[in-house]
Amino acid sequence: MSYFLTQLANGLSYGLILGLIAVGFVIVFTSTGVLNFAHGSVLLTGAYLVAVLQDPIGFWAAVLVGIAGAALLGVLINAVLVRNLAEANPGTAAILMLGVDILLLTELTRRIGNRVLPIGAPWGADVVTFGGITLPTSRAIAAGLAVVVFGVLWFLFARTGAGVAMRAAAADGDTASLMGIRLTRTGAAGWALAGALAAIAGIFLASFPSPGIAPTLALTAFAAIPAWVLGGFDSVVGAIVGGLIIGVVTALAVGYESDLHFLGRGLGEVVPYAVMILVLLVRPSGLFGRQEAVRV
C-alpha cells in the first residue's frame, strides 16, 4: 500500500510541476494565439540563470533573477518576433517558435557543455517521510508552491482588472480591442507570466531527484504537451488537471510496469500520449476546452 501511495505522491507532485508548464502553454496560446514550442528553452534559460548565479549572489537572489530573466525572454520573443509576423497564422508562428527553440537550445547546450550544473537549492537531496510515504523535499515544496501559484493565478484572472482584460482578450480579441483593451499589453503580460511559470517549474525539475541542469531539461517541457492538449488547449484549469493526470498515470505505469509487462517495456514514455488520445476520442475539445461553435 505504501508503495502505491509513494508512487501516487510522486505522480501528483510531478503532475503539479507539469501543470505549471502546461498553464504557460495555455496562457501564451490564449493571449497571442501562438503554439509556443520555444517554451522548453525558455524554461531551460530560467533554470540555467539560477544555476550559474546561485554561487555568486546566493540561491534566492538567483531564483528572482532566473524568474525575471525567463519572463523577460518571453516578452522579447513576443515583441521582436511574434508581433512582427505579417499575418497571425498559428502555423507560421509555431514554426517560428521551433526555430527560436533550436537557436536558444544550441546556445545553452554550448554554454552548459557536457556538465550537469547543480541548482544549489537549500533543500538539497533531503526527503520527507509521512505515513510510510517518502517524498523528496523539493517535490513536496514544489507541490505546495504550485498550489499557491494556481491560487494567485485564479485571483489574478478573476479579481484584478489586468486579469479580466487578459481573459477578455483571450475570449474575443477584436471585441476586447474595441472596448479599449490593448492587446499588445495583454500579450506581453501573457508571455511574461508563462516565462515566469516555466522558470519556477525548471528550478524544481532541476532539483533532486534530478541531478541539475543539463540540456535535456528543455525536452521535459514537451512532457507537458499531452497535459496541455488533454486539458483542452485554452483552459488553465484543464492544464492543471491534465498535468495531474499525466503525472499520476506516468508514475503508476512505470511503478507497475513489471505487472503490466504484456504491454511491453518503456510504458511510461507512451502512456501520456495514449491517455491524451483516449481523452480526445471521447471529448474532442479536451476535458475543459471551449467547444467550437459550428454553424450548419
Partner: peptide
Amino acid sequence: VPQEITPRDTDLSAQVSA
C-alpha cells in the same frame, strides 16, 4: 529486472521505487 528509459528522463524516482 529491466527498466527502459529515454534521455529525457532525468528523474528516476519511479524506476528506483520499482
